[in-house]
């Protein structure tokens, strides 16, 4: 019952969703106190480029946390995210970033990220990112994503799609796989 590992962990977390006003978009102004981008960790994307979390400022974005070796829940969540992205106004969807963070510090490489991107036919502007265990656990903690690495290298983890405003504040979250998205989309559109 491998699927059981990946059942939706619709965990209870305090919603940190804010009303979504991006008060200050200037890159040199301090980030809002709830911004995820304050973490400042450095990641590598599927092209081998370094990406600082702070660099993600200025564009609202979808964020998911998964690992590419995962063959049950993670493809589903990625498909979900693809559908969500196509639902957006095409004029605006270009302005929305997508960041896929990997939990699997031990095995993930730019190559494995790139392979996943090709295999899942992900749009090229999606960033797939990997970093150190410390960076992963901090980011997961800040997002409220719970995960556990199992002996065989698989992970149990929360399946959540986040939407961050341009300052990196969580303004909407959708828990679970293939769950209704009307409310989530409402929040997303409000914060485009």
């Amino acid at each position: 019952m491998k699927f059981a590992f990946f059942l939706i962990l619709s965990l209870v977390q305090t919603s940190r969703a804010h009303d979504g006003h991006s008060h200050d978009l200037k890159a040199d102004s301090p980030l809002p106190g709830t911004s995820i981008l304050q973490l400042g960790s450095v990641w590598k994307n599927q092209r081998g480029e370094s990406v600082k979390l702070g660099d993600l400022r200025g564009k609202s974005r979808f964020v998911v946390v998964l690992y590419t070796r995962c063959d049950t829940a993670c493809p589903l969540i990625v498909e979900d995210l693809k559908e969500i992205a196509t639902e957006l106004d095409p004029k605006k969807s270009g302005q929305v970033g997508v960041s896929v963070f990997s939990l699997d510090s031990a095995r993930e490489t730019p190559q494995s990220l790139s392979d996943f991107s090709v295999k899942r036919k992900l749009p090229t502007h999606w960033d797939l990112l990997t970093s150190s265990p410390a960076a992963v656990s901090e980011l997961a903690a800040a997002l409220g994503v719970r995960y556990k690495r199992l002996k065989d290298g698989e992970f149990i983890h929360s399946n959540v799609i986040f939407f961050l405003n341009r300052n990196g504040e969580i303004v909407a979250r959708k828990e679970g796989l293939k769950t209704p998205r009307a409310e989530f989309m409402k929040q997303v559109r409000k914060n485009l």
């Binding site: 962990l9 619709s10 965990l11 209870v12 656990s137 556990k148």
Partner: peptide
Amino acid sequence: VDNFSESIMSG
């Protein structure tokens, strides 16, 4: 503990 979030006991 560092990995408190591994306690994935639901509510």
